[in-house]
C-alpha cells in the first residue's frame, strides 16, 4: 500500500474520530486520505463514474456510522476496502435484483461500455471487458492485487479468504483474461 505523507497516519485519524470534539476533523482526514483509492476500487467494480460516485458516498456514510465498531487490531485500510466492496456488490445486486451472478457481470460490462470517460480502443476495450466478465470473486481479487497493489495477506482480510486460495484465484483470473483476449481478437 502506498503511503501518502500529506495525510496523518491511521492511528491519529482514529484518535481524532474517537474524540467527540474532533470527530468531524478526523473523518475529514480519513475521507481525504482514502477517497481516490476507494473510488477507483469501486469504479472497477461497478463499471462507470456515475454509479461509482453514488457508491463511494454511500460507502463513506456507512464508514461514518460504523467507525465505532472498527477493531483496532485490524487494518483501517483493509476495513475500508471491505465496506467499499460490500457496498459495490450490494449496489450491483440491487440494480439487477433477481438476476444471476453472470447477469451481473454482463451488466457491469455493459456499464463499462456506456461509460463516457472510457477511452475506446478496440483491443484494450476487449481486455477491459475480459476483466469485467470475470466471476465476481476472481475480479475482486484481480483488482485488489493488480490495481490496488495489495499483498495477499491484505486481500485475505478484505475477502475473508485464505492466502493460498487467493493466489489460485488470481492465477485463474489472469488465465481467463488471456483466454478471453485470444478468443476475441
Amino acid at each position: 500500500m502506498q503511503q501518502n505523507s500529506e495525510h496523518p497516519d491511521d492511528t491519529l485519524i482514529l484518535q481524532l474520530i474517537d474524540s467527540q470534539e474532533k470527530k468531524e476533523l478526523g473523518f475529514r482526514y480519513l475521507v481525504s486520505k482514502y477517497k481516490e483509492r476507494l473510488y477507483w476500487h469501486i469504479r472497477r467494480m461497478v463499471g462507470n463514474h456515475e454509479d461509482a460516485d453514488d457508491v463511494i458516498q454511500n460507502t463513506f456514510v456507512k464508514v461514518y456510522r460504523n467507525i465505532h465498531t472498527f477493531q483496532y487490531n485490524a487494518s483501517l485500510y483493509t476495513w475500508l476496502y471491505r465496506i467499499a466492496t460490500n457496498e459495490s456488490i450490494n449496489f450491483l445486486k440491487s440494480k439487477k435484483s433477481g438476476y444471476s451472478l453472470s447477469d451481473m457481470q454482463e451488466f457491469a460490462s455493459a456499464n463499462l461500455k456506456e461509460d463516457l470517460y472510457f477511452d475506446e480502443q478496440n483491443a484494450l476495450n476487449k481486455l477491459k471487458s475480459a476483466i469485467d466478465a470475470l466471476p465476481e470473486k476472481q475480479k475482486l481479487v484481480f483488482n485488489l492485487r493488480y490495481y490496488d497493489e495489495m499483498s495477499y495477506e491484505e486481500i485475505a482480510q478484505v475477502t475473508d479468504t485464505s492466502v493460498g486460495a487467493l493466489k489460485a484465484s488470481y492465477h485463474h483470473a489472469v488465465k481467463k483474461i488471456e483466454s478471453f483476449i485470444k478468443n476475441t481478437i
Binding site: 475521507v31 469504479r43 463511494i56
Partner: peptide
C-alpha cells in the same frame, strides 16, 4: 501470462470529470 501483462500495461487509465476529487470530500 506475458501477453496479458503487456496489454494491461498499455491500458489507458480511466478518467473522471475535471475537479471531481476536489469536490468529492465536501460532498461526502
Amino acid at each position: 501470462s506475458p501477453e496479458t501483462a503487456r496489454l494491461l500495461s498499455d491500458l489507458p487509465g480511466q478518467s473522471v470529470p475535471q475537479g471531481y476529487f476536489d469536490t468529492l470530500e465536501a460532498q461526502i
